[in-house]
Nucleic acid binder design. Structure first.
Length: 475
RNA sequence: GGUCCUGUGGAGCAGUUGGAGUGCUCGCCGCCCUGUCAAGGCGGAGGUCGCGGGUUCAAGUCCCGUCAGGACCGCCA
């Protein structure tokens, strides 16, 4: 009958006192404190409020599970009350049912049956330790408040691995990135960046920001994006190189984390037209080996930070990373000794060699031919056809380029004239050397390549939130 | 830029010698199920076989073009 007591007529439970003074101040006493999935175990027996996305529903006849996803992970919420339909049929005469359904609030069970995956909900429920529950803790007797409903998903998000192909994921990036695996790779990138900053800051490096809109496409000419800058030609910066060198004259040691833009028509699994460059430049070095030592130290801190913050296993960075001269690298790879550069297959072979002979996942290749390096590269004093430049290979892929730079004004004048270019185009840059610069050098780490190698991703796009390439400019 | 490969319900695939839009895994909808955890069981809906042209009695299948995607190479981080 209508007078029958229906269980879901219920007040929201009064908020209990929460442990930890930091979580509760007198002013907040009447507000509901949101608890993250990772904190739940500390609240055993208490009623708390959690909120997040519906990761997955599992509906059985008399028990239902709501798997909630928040910033920290997953929470299982259990609804053991029978379905509203079963309740209605049990408690009412058939003639009263329609009226009863109109008069009663929807039960949590009924709400869950209506909600789709990825809808956003707030749940107030009691924390219960239960060995049957994933992670040993779950929430029971929930009151569910819907914050937003989600449309039907284009692909499943609840499985351990994303089943959609990469193009499908990238087309729906806002959704695909929510998957724990995609989210984890972005967290690794964030930890790598944090480690980079921490390592260099404690070595007296100063973080700088350099312009991404530049006046001339000087470094290599062709591979830049042109733009209309108030009616004049402008370009997107393909590197902070000139600016970080200029700033060595100010701080001695500088670094930058920022985007670089490459208009190269390179359509591969390791190329992006915008990527994140982890740049550093340091003054008063003897030669490129001082730069390599600082890079090695930095990589060690980056790995430690990734392990700590992203809970990801990282390979050991040797205190001294094996280093092979360019000609030796060609020999190891079995390449033609006249080759001016290492092909991707050569890099893979050298990576395998370093692991086999030195137990290192990292290997430096030093002394590239000058003709393959940019004009500001410092030549090897012993043989000026070779350079004091280096690359760092990680698991067989080039992830860092660095080296010692020219630092004397006259050397720059000669190098620019040798390219057949006018000095005026480099006037602002040359000022740094005209007015005195120490011997210096630096490097640039490709963040996406680094993370892809670390996580074993076949394509840098898998670890990039919104990749930009030859074919993709949205989303 | 070059070479090769792939386009089949919402997702991922298979489709034989050219013979009816055939099949698989998942999702979705309905029903069943008291502990799921990538839940399970039964049933159902959902298709311009990327697009255009050609060959053929007949094309998802063969040929040409085109668009989209992928792999490798070149080049780079």
């Amino acid at each position: 009958m209508l007078g029958a007591k229906v269980w879901w007529h219920r007040e929201v439970p009064a908020r209990p006192h929460l442990p930890g003074a930091a979580l509760q101040t007198p002013e907040e006493d009447d507000t509901v404190q949101r608890i993250l999935s990772s904190q739940l175990k500390a609240y055993s027996g208490q009623t708390v409020t959690v909120a997040g996305w519906i990761h997955r529903r599992r509906l059985l006849k008399s028990v239902a599970f709501l798997i909630l996803r928040d910033a920290e992970g997953l929470t299982q919420i259990v609804i053991t009350e029978p379905s509203p339909r079963a309740q209605l049929e049990e408690l009412t005469e058939p003639s009263d049912r329609a009226q009863l359904e109109e008069l009663t609030e929807p039960s949590p069970r009924a709400q869950l049956e209506e909600l789709t995956e990825e809808s956003v909900v707030e749940v107030t429920a009691t924390v219960t330790l239960n060995e049957q529950a994933p992670g040993g803790v779950e929430l029971v007797s929930p009151v569910i408040k819907t914050l937003a409903k989600a449309a039907e998903l284009p692909f499943e998000l609840h499985r351990p691995a994303l089943t959609a192909t990469l193009p499908t994921q990238l087309d729906h990036a806002a959704l695909a990135l929510r998957h724990p695996s995609r989210r984890a790779s972005l967290k690794v990138a964030a930890a790598a960046t944090a480690g980079f900053r921490a390592a260099l800051s404690e070595q007296r490096f100063v973080e700088i920001q350099t312009p991404k809109i530049v006046a001339s496409a000087t470094e290599s000419g062709a591979d830049v994006f042109r733009l209309d800058y108030f009616g004049r030609p402008g370009y997107l910066a393909q590197s902070p190189q000139f600016y970080k060198q200029m700033m060595v004259g100010v701080f001695e040691r500088v670094f930058e984390v920022g985007p670089v833009f490459r208009a190269e028509p390179s359509d591969t699994a390791r190329h992006l037209s915008q990527y994140t460059s982890l740049d550093a430049e340091m003054g008063f070095v003897a030669d490129h080996r001082d730069v390599m030592a600082m890079l090695t130290r930095t990589l060690g801190v980056m790995m430690a930070t990734i392990t700590a913050r992203a809970r990801t296993q990282t390979p050991k960075v040797p205190s001294e990373i094996p280093s092979v001269p360019f000609a030796e690298a060609l020999r190891i790879a079995g390449a033609d000794r006249d080759e001016p550069d290492l092909a991707p297959a050569d890099e893979r072979a050298i990576g395998e060699w370093a692991l086999r002979e030195h137990g290192s996942e990292f290997v430096y290749v030093t002394g590239y031919p000058m003709r393959k390096r940019p004009f500001y590269t410092h030549p090897d004093p012993v043989d000026p056809t070779y350079s004091n430049g280096f690359d760092l290979l990680f698991r067989g892929m080039e992830i860092v380029t660095g080296g010692q730079r020219l630092h004397r004004y006259d050397d720059y004048v000669k190098a620019i004239q040798a390219m057949g270019e006018p000095l005026e185009a480099y006037a602002g840059y040359l000022d740094a050397f005209r007015y005195g610069m120490p011997p210096h050098g630096g490097w640039a780490i490709g963040l996406e390549r680094f993370v892809a190698r670390l996580l074993g991703a076949a394509n840098v796009r898998e670890v990039t939130a919104f990749p930009r390439d030859l074919h993709r400019i949205a989303p």
